[in-house]
Structures are given as structure tokens and as C-alpha cells.
């Protein structure tokens, strides 16, 4: 290793000690001296560079961080609260909507859906076993009564008509059953006087306390049924 290279390396880093450098240092007392000189220079430089750190700087740093993360946490928990609140609000709205709103917007659609849903429960050949008395007993709930039979009544019971207590009557018809609903007035369901689907037709009539809906297949004369109902029904005050 020549002198120039040695100087360059020792100047660049006085602590460099690979084999080449060690050999050079040991073989030449002048280089050894020079190395020591530079080491003492580095010592002085270290002293000079090693300025005093303000006392309490580390405490200050930790304090600032604690404050900052406290602020952050406060902000975070506020955001979380807002988030939780809006989720709860949205859930409330959804539940409200699902529970209290009708899937069907008018009487006709609901009546058809109701009958389609119960297809198979009744048949046109079921025994006729409901008397006028027991029908009127049930009609009392709706403040109405029939003065005479309007047809062969096979089934009469309360049912839920879009969440409302109503009366579900099944009569024997010409070819298939005729269903009559007595449904209290409801603002949610739009009154539809006539409705139909591919198999069934229906008619609704507005009475004092309730709507009466007649649904049957297309062979049936609904007007006849409505006339019979009109003739025989009476409403208490």
C-alpha cells in the first residue's frame, strides 16, 4: 500500500482496520504515528461535535407524543361513536321499514298473494261445516253480521291480513273455492276495487268499518257474490 492510498484511507476513516491497513501500520512507525495523530483528531472532533443536549429533551419528546396520541384517541373515539350511532340509526330504519311497511301496496295484490300462499290448504270439496251463528260470532269483532248464508261456508277464521286481524272465509264455489276477506280499513294498503292475475280475479267493496274482498277463479261471477253480501250484511253502529 503506497503512502498516498494509506493517507486517503486513514483520513476517510481513522478507525479502519483491515489486514492491509494493519500491515501498513505495523511496518512503518511513521504511519503508526500518523494514525495516532488522526485518532486524537477524531477524539477532539467528537468532543467538539458532541454538543450538550438540552436537559429534559427526552421527557419533552415523550410528553408531546403522549399529548398527540391522546388527542388522536379522543378524535378516534368521537369518530367511533359517530360511526356506531349512524349504524344503529340505519339499522333502526331498516328494521322499522321491514317490520311496519307492507310488501304489497294495495289490497288486491295482498289478497292474491295470501290465497296463493294458502293454496292446497283448502279444496272445493271440503265439508261444509261452518254455521251462520259461528260466522256471526266472528263477524262481531268487525261490528258486522250476516242475516242469512251467502253461500256454502267451509272455513271461517281470523287471519293476519298484512298484520291486521281480519276474517278469512272460504266458500264453496262453482268450480273452485271462493275466498272472502273482511279487512279493517288500512291506510297502508291502497284500496283496489278490481284486481286480477293469470288465474284469479277479485273485487273489493268499501263498507262502514271494513273492506270486503272477494277472490275467486275466473269462472265465478263475483258480482253475484257481492250482491249476496250486500243484501245480507248488516253493520252495527
Amino acid at each position: 500500500m503506497d503512502d498516498l492510498q494509506f493517507r486517503r484511507r486513514i483520513y476517510a476513516d481513522p478507525n479502519t482496520r483491515d489486514e492491509d491497513m494493519l500491515a501498513a501500520i505495523h511496518s512503518d512507525p511513521a504511519k503508526q504515528n500518523f494514525t495516532q495523530e488522526l485518532e486524537s483528531l477524531d477524539n477532539k472532533l467528537f468532543q467538539a461535535l458532541n454538543i450538550e443536549v438540552p436537559s429534559g429533551l427526552s421527557d419533552k419528546l415523550i410528553l408531546r407524543q403522549t399529548m398527540a396520541s391522546h388527542q388522536q384517541q379522543k378524535r378516534k373515539s368521537r369518530v367511533r361513536l359517530a360511526l356506531a350511532a349512524s349504524i344503529a340509526f340505519a339499522m333502526g330504519l331498516t328494521i322499522n321499514f321491514m317490520q311496519f311497511s307492507s310488501a304489497y301496496s294495495n289490497l288486491g295484490d295482498y289478497a292474491i298473494a295470501h290465497i296463493v300462499h294458502e293454496e292446497g290448504h283448502f279444496s272445493n270439496t271440503s265439508p261444509v261445516n261452518v254455521s251462520l251463528d259461528s260466522l256471526n260470532e266472528k263477524m262481531a269483532t268487525f261490528q258486522g253480521s250476516f242475516t242469512a248464508d251467502i253461500g256454502k261456508l267451509m272455513f271461517a277464521d281470523y287471519c293476519r291480513f298484512d298484520g291486521m286481524k281480519s276474517l278469512h272465509l272460504v266458500f264453496q264455489g262453482a268450480t273452485s273455492m271462493v275466498t272472502v276477506f273482511v279487512v279493517p280499513h288500512n291506510e297502508d294498503l291502497e284500496f283496489t276495487a278490481n284486481f286480477t292475475n293469470d288465474k284469479l280475479i277479485g273485487k273489493s267493496q268499501h263498507f262502514k268499518h271494513s273492506n270486503i274482498i272477494v277472490v275467486a277463479d275466473k269462472n265465478e261471477s263475483l258480482v253475484q257474490w257481492q250482491t249476496a253480501i250486500n243484501k245480507n250484511i248488516s253493520w252495527s253502529t
Binding site: 486517503r8 483520513y11 476517510a12 488522526l38
Partner: peptide
């Protein structure tokens, strides 16, 4: 970097 270190020490020395 090594050259700059060399010059820095050289100047100071």
C-alpha cells in the same frame, strides 16, 4: 463519501 470524509478531516487537521 470517502473522498468527502478525507477532505473534511484534511481541512480540519
Amino acid at each position: 463519501v470517502m473522498t468527502r470524509l478525507f477532505r473534511a478531516r484534511n481541512q480540519l487537521k
